[in-house]
Nucleic acid binder design. Sequence first.
DNA 1: CGCCTTTCTTGACTCGTTCAAGAAAATCCG
DNA 2: CGGATTTTCTTGAACGAGTCAAGAAAGGCG
Lengths: 148, 148
Amino acid sequence: MPSHAALEQSLRDAALRVTRPRLAVLAAVHAHPHAETDVLIEAARTAVGEVSHQAVYDVLRALTGAGLVRRIQPSNSVARYEARVGDNHHHVVCRSCGEIADVDCAVGETPCLTADNDHGFAIDEAEVIYWGRCPTCASGPAGTPSAS
Amino acid sequence: MPSHAALEQSLRDAALRVTRPRLAVLAAVHAHPHAETDVLIEAARTAVGEVSHQAVYDVLRALTGAGLVRRIQPSNSVARYEARVGDNHHHVVCRSCGEIADVDCAVGETPCLTADNDHGFAIDEAEVIYWGRCPTCASGPAGTPSAS
DNA sequence: CGCCTTTCTTGACTCGTTCAAGAAAATCCG
DNA sequence: CGGATTTTCTTGAACGAGTCAAGAAAGGCG
C-alpha cells in the first residue's frame, strides 16, 4: 500500500489538487479494496475527522475520471471502488454475500477484447464478472446466505 | 418472436400462473430487447391497458427467477431485460448513448468460465461486457454523445 | 362452482446518488 | 510572501429507481 507521499504524488501527476479529503479517500480505497461508498466515507472520516459524504462522492468521481481508481458495480450492488487500475483484471462476485475478489486475466494481456461480431462498435474495454459463491457461502447449506 | 400461445406455454412450463400482465410483460421483453423498465411498463400498458408499475416489477422478478428473461445492468445504467436466455451470449455497451447489442461468445460454449485463480469461489457464470462506442456515436465527433 | 393461494393495485417510503449555492482552501503569479 | 483566481468542500435539499405493505382481484384446483 502506497505511502502518504506516494499518494500525494499520484494526485499531482493526475493534475488534481492535493487536499486532505482526497488523500484520505484515496488511502481508504487502497486500504479497502472493493469497498462500498459508505465504508470509504467512514474510513475517510476516521483519517481526517469530518468529511461530508458529498465531498467523498466528488472525490471518487474525480479520482475515477483521472484513472486513479476504478468504479465497479455488479448487478444488485451499490457502487464499489478499487485502486488497482490499468492491469485489466477481473472480478469474482459471490451471489450470496456480495464478496468480491480479484481475478487475473487467464488468457493474456487484454484477452476478451475481441468479440465475435462487434456490430460496428469501437470496443476499448472488456469487463468480465464471474458469478458464483465464495468459499464461506459455498461450504454452508445452499440456502444459508451470509447476507442480504 | 414467439406467438401468444408460445409465450403462454413458456409461462406454464415455468410453473407460473398465466395472467394478462405477465403475458404483456413477457411479450414486451421479446419485442424490446435490452429495454429499460419504464419502456416495458409502457409497452405492457399499450398491450393490456392499465398495469401498475409494481406489477411489472413483480412480473420481471418472477420471470427472471424462472429463467425466462435475463436481467442486465451495466454500470451507470438502470436495469434492462432481455428474453434471449440460456445461450451465454454477451453484450457490447456504448459509453455515449448506452445502446446495447448482443455478442456471441467468440471462443466456444462457456469460454470464460475458467478464471486463472478463482479464490475458492464456486463459479457458475461468466458475464462479459464490452465497452466502447456504437457506430453512430463513434462516427460523430468524440465529444458529441447522443444522450445523457 | 366455491375455496385457497397467488398476483395485482394503490400508495407510501427507502436509500444511493446527485444538484445547488455559498464558504473555504489550494494554486498561481507578481 | 500576499492577494487574486479557481477549484473544492460543506450544508441541505432533492431526485428517482426500486421496494415494502395491505387489501382487492383473479387464477387454479378439487
